[in-house]
């Protein structure tokens, strides 16, 4: 970690989330300055104070609304200097049943998990490419690996994001922009609070943060936070559709 590039800022979109906070701490620990972006940046003041105090890093707060896609170009162009790493943790599980009935609810899930992050990360990747390179990290989901009755609208949006990141990775490979897709599986966060989650398959936010940093250092493309998920999803993906449609996974 000695190249000057490692001290370039890390931009975290969705920094108020549990995963965003965990990622901020891990990057700050390595001395990287941080730009924390969230809808309501004032709420992040205590987090900024904590990161400055614990790790002595510079922390900047920015307002960012993932749904305001027309505002994304101004947001991206307003970042100075260009971040060396961007992590997008924005996501919304939403209510599957509501989204089946209500188009607005469906649209909100798609916009929060796919359109918004896609637009922002695409613009950021281009700015990084112009500046000589960087790392773009999107948080996908195992739910995007196969559509299941219980959460296929969320899953479809995450599948869309995964395909988008794959294409972005492909397009910018030659321009030194490395694109990572992280699939966390279950994580103990606000999103899953109160759900009964299997311990073996459930990660702490800090595990996601470590997986993110590892993926950046090792230049991995698609990573599962807990490797057991790679196996689980391989099996689920292999089930033939005539069988899969009868399951209740």
């Amino acid at each position: 970690m000695s190249s000057p590039e490692t001290k370039s800022p890390v931009l975290i979109l969705g920094a108020a989330s549990d995963i965003g906070r965990a990622i901020a701490r891990r990057y700050a620990e390595t001395g990287r300055p941080l730009v924390l972006a969230a809808r309501d940046p004032e709420r992040l003041e205590p987090d900024a104070a904590d990161l400055r105090l614990r790790f002595g890093v510079a922390v900047e707060l920015r307002a960012f609304d993932v749904l305001d896609i027309t505002g994304h170009p101004a947001f991206v162009n307003g970042l100075e200097p260009v971040p060396g790493t961007v992590v997008c943790t924005v996501g919304l599980l939403g209510d599957q049943a509501a989204a089946e009935r209500d188009p607005a609810a469906l649209e909100l899930i798609v916009a929060t998990n796919f359109t918004g992050p896609g637009v922002a990360l695409g613009l950021l990747a281009d700015r990084m490419a112009a500046a000589g390179g960087g790392t773009v990290i999107g948080i996908g989901s195992v739910a995007g690996d196969r559509g299941r009755a219980s959460n296929y609208i969320y899953g479809a949006a995450k599948a869309g994001l995964a395909a988008f990141l794959s294409g972005l990775r492909n397009r910018l490979y030659a321009k030194e922009v490395h694109v990572v897709t992280v699939k966390p599986g279950f994580v103990r966060t606000r999103m899953t609070e109160g759900m009964a989650l299997p311990a073996l398959l459930t990660a702490e936010p800090d595990e996601v943060a470590r997986a993110v940093m590892r993926a950046e250092t090792r230049r991995q493309d698609v990573v599962y936070v807990r490797s057991v998920w790679r196996l689980v999803m391989a099996v689920i993906r292999m089930l033939p559709e005539p069988v899969f449609k009868r399951t209740r996974l």
Binding site: D18, P46, D47, A49, D50, L53, R54
Partner: peptide, 19 residues
């Protein structure tokens, strides 16, 4: 446990404010 931020520290007096 998620209320876990250090908020302010005065290196002159050793006073720490935290969650």
């Amino acid at each position: 446990l998620r209320f876990d931020r250090l908020l302010a520290f005065d290196p002159e007096t050793g006073r720490l404010t935290c969650e």
